[in-house]
């Protein structure tokens, strides 16, 4: 059973990001980049499937600039068997990524496609679902537990108000939530082995797809600076402010 894990190169969560002066986006010059944390959870789950004997091969794939190879090497060090980069310099957006991945899936014929539920930069949370729609595959999103048994996937989903358990046929799209697992750290021997693992690079043209952005970003604004808090004298004053200033209670 083959597991395909799409991963995204994103700005490191510890970086204090700045909006570019022309408001065209976030300034990523010389900023530390990393594997999207939800994608890391997906890699971990795939590697655990392999260790448990459920999966036979784990393939990490990224869509984006050439430097995504760094993040793919990290995935190889974490236990993926090989990697694929669909290299493009255009601003990647969920629909473009899902389209490119669909073309790759036609070549790879993976049984499980394991996405992170969202990326921590754009926070779109769309790619997995779009890919499922384009390929017509069943999907188990926001997974906090996944079991593959007798040719079926059993997914526990974190939904509003509780947990939902579903079962689907294979091949299946699964997107990982935070509580699915705690990713391991790469070991030094595995970092060294990653160097020798296979990494294929395709262009979208080679796969016959168009990843041109369909959305245009008009302006990016930093969130307003948080004002200092105040001390209230009485409960009455607090209730009054919550009602009339913050308008959080009726």
């Amino acid at each position: 059973m083959k597991v395909l894990v799409p991963v995204k190169r994103v700005v490191d969560a510890n970086v204090k990001i700045r909006v570019k002066p022309d408001k065209s986006g976030v300034d990523l010059t010389n900023v530390k980049m990393t594997v999207n944390p939800f994608c890391e959870i997906a890699i971990e789950e795939a590697v655990r499937m392999k260790e448990a004997g459920t999966a036979t091969e784990v393939v990490a794939v990224a869509v984006g600039v050439s430097a995504c190879q760094e993040q793919l090497r990290t995935c190889l060090a974490l236990g993926a068997d090989r990697a694929v980069l669909i290299e493009t310099d255009v601003d990647i957006q969920p629909l473009g990524v899902a389209t490119a991945l669909k073309a790759l899936q036609e070549k790879e014929q993976a049984d499980i496609i394991l996405f992170g539920k969202q990326s921590i930069d754009g926070d779109n949370g769309q790619t997995g679902q779009m890919f499922a729609a384009l390929t017509g595959m069943p999907q188990g999103t926001f997974a906090s537990e996944v079991t593959i048994e007798n040719g079926k996937a059993y997914v526990t989903r974190e939904v509003d108000g509780g947990l939902q358990k579903i079962s689907t046929s294979l091949p299946v799209v699964i997107t990982t939530d935070l509580r699915l697992n705690e990713p391991r750290y790469a070991s030094l021997p595995n970092i060294m082995k990653a160097k020798k693992k296979q990494m294929d690079i395709f262009t979208p043209e080679e796969l016959g797809v168009d990843v041109t952005p369909t959305l245009e970003v008009l302006s990016v604004e930093p969130p307003p600076v948080r004002a200092a808090g105040i001390k209230v004298e009485s409960v009455e004053e607090l209730v009054d402010k919550l009602k009339n200033e913050a308008k959080v209670i009726p």
Binding site: T34, Q69, E70, R73, T74, A77, Y185, A186, L188, I191, M192, A194, K195
Partner: peptide, 15 residues
């Protein structure tokens, strides 16, 4: 190099 950076990042995480 990529490996050196990964070594550095991983040790940071363990620490």
């Amino acid at each position: 190099t990529g490996e050196q950076q990964l070594i550095r990042d991983t040790v940071k995480k363990v620490c």
